[in-house]
Amino acid sequence: MTNSPLERAGLRPRVDKALAGFLATQRAHLLEIDPALAEVADAVSAFVLGGGKRLRPAFAYWGFRGAGGIDSDEAVAAVSALELVQASALIHDDLMDRSDTRRGEPSVHRRFELLHRRAGWRSDAAGFGDSAAVLLGDLALVWSDDLLHTSGMGLAELARARPVFDLMRTEVTVGQYLDVLTQATADTSLERAGKVARFKSAKYTVERPLLLGAALAGAGPEVLAAYSAFGLPLGEAFQMRDDVLGVFGDPAQTGKPAGDDLREGKRTYLVASALAALDDAGRVELDEALGDPALDDAGVERLRAVIRASAALDATEARIDALSREALTALDEAPIEEEAREVLLALADAATRRSV
């Protein structure tokens, strides 16, 4: 048996198979409309199938199993819809952040900008790329509905799952807006940084997938409460780990340029902690450099040193540990199946100890 929690029950290849089959069907539909849409279908497929750990489907699947759900390919297909929500969020996130790469490959808006340039088409290549990314992100979100509802799960199961699925997509969308707003207003409060982390990522990475799986299984209120008590702090710890990697991560592992979060002006918990702890000179230096797209490697190293000196990195690591302990205590007390508890424990470790 594999040691990876993402591979238990053969889950990851099964998710990939469900996604590949669905995307092949959607490609055929697009080609019936116009052969030019092959590039759209191929871009979405490459983005969805070209990487990602399948963490959200894993939490949803084991949330389903923990609540007494019986393994089936239909259940795997249903939770695989979360990868299309994730694709939509990332495509739009890269566009808003003006990120050039994702997983070491050109981001979607850059891919279509390059397509325009190579073809020698009229008008603005960058504008074409931006428009394509908006539409492809929207398409991935539409397709998440399609995959959930064509998964083969029964009408009763889908009716229970639908409110969770809809609320999750609302939360991640408004969380993304709050992130953009925070950058625009330069809000440096820990309260705002925590709220952005909670709604942009934490809830839809762990808590809502768990609750989606629980809803598919027909879980009762005790299981739902336990999943929220486990999932929310774990999701916040996951996002804080992501924030640390956004500043201190190795590009060879993360697939993103070093210090991208600094160039994008992300007001994360890590940055908010640094700004709260620094003296006036350090606060001005960090605040003025945040959001500078021309920040070079030397500038990134300088800001890393400033953040370390503020003890914000240590404080963030301590907060990750505290949130993880809170989550694991809730998991230990959750009234769920033991195999699911074991896998969810391993998933929690993978989510917060990761290096990529």
Rank of each mutant, 00 (worst) to 15 (best):
V44C: 12
V44F: 10
S45L: 01
A46C: 03
V48D: 01
G52Q: 11
K53Y: 11
K53A: 13
K53N: 11
L55Y: 07
R56E: 05
R56L: 06
R56H: 09
R56G: 05
P57Q: 09
A60S: 15
A60Y: 10
A60G: 10
Y61A: 10
Y61Q: 13
W62H: 14
G63Q: 05
G63T: 08
F64E: 00
F64P: 01
F64Y: 15
R65G: 06
G66V: 03
G66C: 05
G66Y: 08
A67L: 04
A67T: 06
G69D: 09
G69S: 15
I70D: 14
I70F: 08
S72N: 07
D73V: 12
E74W: 01
E74T: 08
A75S: 13
A75D: 06
A75W: 05
A75Q: 06
A78R: 02
A78P: 13
S80M: 02
A81V: 05
A81G: 11
E83S: 10
L84Y: 08
L84W: 08
L84I: 12
V85Y: 03
A87K: 03
S88G: 13
S88R: 03
S88C: 14
S88W: 08
A89P: 01
A89M: 11
A89V: 09
I91A: 11
H92S: 04
H92K: 01
D93C: 09
D93K: 13
D94T: 07
L95S: 09
M96D: 00
M96V: 10
D97Q: 06
D97M: 04
R98W: 05
D100E: 15
R102V: 00
R103S: 13
R103N: 14
G104L: 10
V108L: 15
H109A: 10
R111Y: 05
F112R: 00
L114W: 09
L115W: 05
L115I: 09
L115H: 14
H116M: 12
H116F: 11
R118F: 10
A119Q: 14
A119E: 13
G120D: 12
R122W: 09
S123N: 09
S123A: 15
D124Q: 09
A125T: 08
A126F: 01
G127P: 00
F128L: 09
F128A: 14
G129T: 01
S131T: 15
S131H: 14
A132T: 02
V134S: 09
V134P: 02
L135E: 06
L135P: 07
L136H: 06
L139W: 11
L139C: 07
V142W: 09
W143K: 01
S144V: 04
S144P: 07
D145P: 00
H149I: 02
H149E: 12
G152P: 02
M153A: 03
M153G: 00
G154A: 03
G154F: 06
L155D: 13
L155T: 12
L155R: 11
L158D: 01
R160D: 13
R162D: 10
P163M: 14
V164N: 04
F165E: 02
L167G: 00
M168R: 04
T170I: 09
T170Y: 14
T170P: 00
T170M: 13
V172N: 03
T173N: 01
T173H: 04
V174N: 12
V174I: 15
V174R: 15
V174A: 08
